[in-house]
Design a protein around this nucleic acid. Structure first.
Lengths: 239, 239
DNA sequence: ACCTGAACACCGTTCAAGT
DNA sequence: ACCTGAACACCGTTCAAGT
C-alpha cells in the first residue's frame, strides 16, 4: 500500500537552496563546524559537490544562510502578544536566542562572523527589529532608539555566545562527550579562575566561586534586566 | 660600521613561541584570517612548517595566542590612574578594545571564538578583570559584581565586533580597498536597511538614517553610558 | 633539543561534460 | 536548466630524518 500524498515523498526532490541549507544546519548540529564540508553535504543530499554551487555561491553564503535560518526560527518562535510588557517581550526574544545557541553550538561563533562581516545581511535586522519594536513600545524617545536596541542586541549576543560553551566544547570533544554536565563545565571555568595570580586578577578570583553555582539563564536574565534599567534611565532628565 | 648591541640583531634568533605569535599577528593584520597559513608563517620565519609545531600545538592555539597578545596590549595600554572616575576608566578600557578591533580586523571574530570555545583561557579574565575592578570601585555590592562586569564585557565585545566591519570588509576586499571610507560603509548598511520590507521591518527602517551619519565611537560610548546607568540602578532599592 | 621538508589526508572551488 | 565528478590548488598536521 504505497501511501499517496499531494506532497512528493521527498524521495528525490530536486536540489534547492532550501534543502541545501536545511541539510547544512543538520550537519553543523551533528558534526560541528569542521564537519560541514561540501563533500559531506553532497553525500547527504545524494549528489556531487559541484551541484551545490548551482544554488549557492560558496561556503560563506552557505554559513550565512544556515545562521539566518536558525535565527529566523528563534526570533519568530516567540508568539507575539504573549508577553505582558515590552520588557517581558524583550526577555522572550533574548531567551529564544539564548536557547538557540544551546541547540546549535556553532551559532554563537557564526553570529559574530555574520554581524561583523556582513552586517548588511538579514541576520542583524531580524534581531534588531524584534528588539527595537519593544524599545519603541517602552516609550524611549526616537533619538535613543538606536542606542537602546543596539545595547540589547550586543548584550544578548555576547552573553549567549559565552554561555553556549558547554555544548560547544562537548561537540568539539566528539560524540562521546555530548552531555557534558553544565556544572562540570562551569566548574572548569571556576577552577581556572581561582588559579589565577592573586596580584593580577583579584576581582576575577573573588568572583570565581559565584560562577560555579550559578544558573546560566538566571544570570543571563539578570543582565537583560540591567540593560533594561539602563534604558529606563534614558527617560529621566540627564544631570 | 656594523652596529654592535647587547641584543642580538634579530638576524637569526632561534624560533620561539613569542616570535611565532608576533609573526602570526602581523600576518593576520596583513593578509587576513585566510592568509594565516603554516606555510606562509614558516616562510616569514625562514623555516619549515613543521618547526612551528615544536612550539605550538596547532592552529587553534596559535589563534588563541595571537588574540591574547593583542587583547593584553589593548587592555594594558590604558595608563592606570589616568581616569577621574571608575566610569571613565571603564570608558578607557572599552575604547582600548574598540580601537584594537579597528587596528586588527580579525580580532572581533576571534574574540567570539575564544570566549565561546575556551572561556577558561586568558582572554576573558583579562577583559573581565579590568572592567570588574572598576565595577568594584563604583561601589556595586558584591552580589552584583558578576552581573555588572559581564554586562559591560558583553556589550563591549558585541559593539566592537559590529563596528570593526569596515576595516574587515576592506581587508577581505584585498589590499586595494584598504581605506574604504567609514561613511561609505555605513551608507551601505543604511541603504540595505532602507530597502527592507516596510511591513516586516518598520523599526529598522525608521532607524536606518540614524546609522548613516553617526559617529561610531560616540555611539559606542553612548551604549557604555547606558550600561553604566543600568549598573547605577542596582544601587537603588528594587521595587 | 630543535629543526627540515616531504608526505598524507584532507579541503573549497572550478569546469568540461553530460542530461 | 541543472547535475556530475574528476581535477586543481591549496590546506593542517605528521614524522622520519637530520643537526
Amino acid at each position: 500500500m504505497a501511501p499517496r500524498s499531494r506532497r512528493p515523498e521527498r524521495r528525490q526532490e530536486p536540489l534547492s537552496r532550501e534543502r541545501i541549507v536545511t541539510a547544512a544546519v543538520e550537519l553543523l548540529d551533528t558534526a560541528g563546524e569542521r564537519g560541514l564540508t561540501f563533500r559531506a553535504l553532497a553525500e547527504r543530499l545524494a549528489t556531487g559537490p559541484g551541484a551545490i554551487y548551482w544554488h549557492i555561491t560558496g561556503k560563506a553564503e552557505l554559513l550565512g544562510a544556515a545562521t539566518d535560518a536558525v535565527v529566523a526560527a528563534a526570533v519568530t518562535a516567540e508568539p507575539t502578544g504573549t508577553a505582558d510588557s515590552p520588557e517581558d517581550a524583550v526577555r522572550a526574544v533574548a531567551l529564544g536566542l539564548f536557547d538557540a545557541t544551546e541547540a546549535h553550538p556553532w551559532l554563537a561563533t557564526q553570529l559574530a562572523t555574520q554581524l561583523s562581516r556582513t552586517p548588511w545581511g538579514t541576520v542583524a535586522p531580524r534581531i534588531f527589529e524584534s528588539l527595537g519594536r519593544q524599545v519603541r513600545a517602552m516609550g524611549v524617545s526616537e533619538a535613543h532608539w538606536f542606542t537602546a536596541a543596539s545595547a540589547l542586541m550586543h548584550y544578548i549576543l555576547g552573553a549567549a555566545g559565552q554561555n553556549a560553551v558547554n555544548s560547544a566544547s562537548a561537540a568539539s570533544a566528539g560524540p562521546s562527550g555530548r552531555h557534558v554536565d553544565r556544572d562540570e563545565f562551569l566548574g572548569t571555568v571556576s577552577t581556572a579562575w581561582e588559579g589565577l595570580d592573586p596580584d593580577e586578577y583579584p576581582f576575577t578570583r573573588a568572583v570565581a566561586d559565584q560562577v560555579r553555582g550559578h544558573d546560566d539563564r538566571e544570570q543571563f536574565l539578570a543582565g537583560i534586566s540591567l540593560v533594561l534599567a539602563g534604558i529606563a534611565a534614558l527617560h529621566r532628565p540627564a544631570r
